[in-house]
Design a binder for these strands. Sequence first.
DNA 1: TATCGGCGCTAACCCGATTTAGCAAACGAA
DNA 2: TTCGTTTGCTAAATCGGGTTAGCGCCGATA
Lengths: 357, 357
Amino acid sequence: MSPRRVTLADVAKAAGVSRTTASLVLSGRGRELRISHDVEQRVLKAAEELQYRPNIVSVGLRTGTSRTIGFVSDTVATSRLAGDMIKGALEAARDRGFMLFIGETEGDAALEGLLLQAMQDRQVDGLILASMFTRTIKLPKGITAAPTVLLNALSKQPTPLPAVLPDEVEAGRSAARVLLDAGHRDGIYLIGAGPSLRDVPSGSVAAVERLVGIREALGEAGVKVAGARVCPDWQPEYGLAAAQDLLRTTRPRALICFNDRIAMGVYQALDDFGLKVPADVSVVSFDDHPIASWMRPKLTTVALPHYELGRKAVDVLFTEIDRDRSDPDRVGEVHRVPMPVRSRDSVAPSATAESLD
Amino acid sequence: MSPRRVTLADVAKAAGVSRTTASLVLSGRGRELRISHDVEQRVLKAAEELQYRPNIVSVGLRTGTSRTIGFVSDTVATSRLAGDMIKGALEAARDRGFMLFIGETEGDAALEGLLLQAMQDRQVDGLILASMFTRTIKLPKGITAAPTVLLNALSKQPTPLPAVLPDEVEAGRSAARVLLDAGHRDGIYLIGAGPSLRDVPSGSVAAVERLVGIREALGEAGVKVAGARVCPDWQPEYGLAAAQDLLRTTRPRALICFNDRIAMGVYQALDDFGLKVPADVSVVSFDDHPIASWMRPKLTTVALPHYELGRKAVDVLFTEIDRDRSDPDRVGEVHRVPMPVRSRDSVAPSATAESLD
DNA sequence: TATCGGCGCTAACCCGATTTAGCAAACGAA
DNA sequence: TTCGTTTGCTAAATCGGGTTAGCGCCGATA
C-alpha cells in the first residue's frame, strides 16, 4: 500500500554507481576518497530527486547509534515541572537531530531497571536520569553502557556522572536580595524552613540550599532573620497554618516563603488577619509555579528554570557522548543553572526605607 | 570497556546449536518446527544464564518494527494537561513492551513534518497525534505510513483515522446535574460561554459541547439558564471581569464556570462582593485543574480525564496496529472518554430545596 | 537394496546501511 | 616496455537478528 521507502540502493541505481559510492558521497567522505565531481553530483541529484532519507534503524545496527536519547524520570505527571524540563530537553535534542524516549519509574527500582533495559535494547546514545524535585538518588546499576547525565539529582555514591541542578543557594541569595534591595532590614520571617539549617523538611536538598543562600545574603548585609516556621510538607495548608501561627504573635514586614504553594496559604493567612500584600507585608517565594502569576497580587518569586535545566542536561550529555571515553578517573561535574527572579507585585519598599529618602 | 552485549550467536554457541535453532526456540516457534525438547532446554538455559535480550534495532531492521510509538503533540509544556496524558500513554505502551517517542510541534507545520519524518526514519509502529486542547486539526500529509490515532483532536477532512476525545457533552450534562441534584432550579448563570450556542470563544470545541450538554440537562429538567457571560479567553482575569459584571446587577444562586481558571477569577469576584461559596452561591466548573483542589472552598469540577485519554489512545492505536489493513473504506471511529465529576466543597443545596424538606 | 517420508536441525539469504580491502584503468618514470 | 603509483570506483564483509529452503539421518516400505 504505502510506497516502499527509498533506500541507498535505489539512489545508487539511479545514479548509476555502487551503493558504496553513494554512501561515501552522502556521508561527505566522497571528497577525501577522491570521488569525481561528476559522480558526486549524480548521486546528490538522485538522492534529492528520490527524496532519500537514510533508515536510522539500519544505520543503528551498523554503527551502534540511534540518534536517540533516553529521558528517565521518577515522575512526569505529578508535578508540572516535568513539562518544561522535557520541553527543554526535547528542543536541545531536536537541534541535533535527536529524538527522546520518555520513561517514568514512579520511584520503582524494578521498573527503572526494565526501562533502562528497554532503552539499551534500542541502543540509545545517552541517558538522562531526572528527578522532579531535587534530591539524592541511588544510581541504578548497569548504566555504564551509555553516557549518562543526572538531572535535578545528585548521586548518593561518588560517581563520574555529571549532574545538572538549579542553583538553589544563589536563589536563596536572590530572594534575600529582593527584600534587601527594597529596603527591608527588620521583621523578615521565613515560612517553610529555618531559621537554623537543621530546621528543614527531611530529604529536601532545596530547603537546605535555599536557606544557606538566604542566610548568607542577609548576613552579609548585617541583617538577621527575625524568625521562621517550618512546614513539614510544602503545601498551601501548611503555609496557611504556619503563617497563622506566626501572625497570632507578630506583625512581620516581609516573608520569604520556601515555595509558591506555601505562599498561596500565606496569602490567605495574611488576608484573614487583614494584612495587605505588599503594603503591610512583602512576600517573596521560590519556584515560579504557574499559580504565582495568578495570585493577587502577583507573586514575586525565584524561578526554577525547568526549561533551561532540560536543555542544559542535553547539552552536557552531548559533550559526554563526544568526549573521549578513555579517562577513567574523572569526577562528575556539577552544573548549576541560575534561578532567575521574577519580579512581580508582592514586594514593596519598606516603610523605613522610604522614610530615609 | 562495557562488556559487549550478548547476541543470539553467543547463546547458540553456548547451547551448541546454530543461530537458526536458537532463534526458533526463543521465538516460540521451536515447538511447531519440531525442535527436540533437549535442544530447546539447552537454548533456554543458555539464554537465561547469559541474560540474553534481543537487540531490538536488529529485529527492527529485519521486521520493520521497533516496538515504539511516536507521540506528537502541539505542546507538552504550556498546559500541564500533557503530563497526565503522556503518563497514561506511557503506561499503556509499557504494558505491551513499547516505548514512546515524544515530539512537540508548537503548532508549526514544518516542524511537525520534520518530526514525523524523524519518527518514520526510526520505524515507529504507530503514531498518536495529540492536541492539548480539543480542536480540529489539518492532518499532516504522509502519515499513512504508520497506523495513527488522533488524541483530543478531530480532523478537518473526513479521515479513516480513529480519534479519542473527552466526552464534553456528557460533561456539560454532569455539571448541570450537579446543580440540579443539589436542588438548584433558579438563578443559574454561566461564566465563560453561552447562553446561546453562538456565544463561544472562537475555535473552542469544548465550549460548544459543554454548552450543549448543560442546556440539554437543564432543559430536560425544565430549568432555564438565567443568564451568561462570555469570556474571550478562559483565564482568571476574564472570569473575574465577567463575574464582576454579572454581580453588579444580579445575585446568582449558582454559577457554571467553563473552566477552573475562570472559576478562580469568579471566586475572587464573589469575595469582592461579599458572597460566600457555597452558602450564597454554588460554583461548579470543568477541567479539574490542580488549582481546583487548592482553592478555598475546594472546587467541584468535571475532570478532563487526561490519564485515561492517553491510555485510551494507545489502546486504540494497538487495535489499529493489529487490525487487518485491507479494509479501505472504513471511517475513523470517535472514542469518547467519560469526564468524571469531582465533588468537593463549592456546591451546596439550594435554599429553596432545603425549605421543601 | 533402493526409495520414500518424516524428523531435527542448519546453511544461507535478507533487512539497509557503513566500512574495509582491493581492483582496473590511466599515468609517470626508468 | 615494464613496473609502480595514483585515481576512481566497487565487491564483500559486517552489524544481529528473522526466515526460507534444504540437508543428512533414520526407519519403514516396496
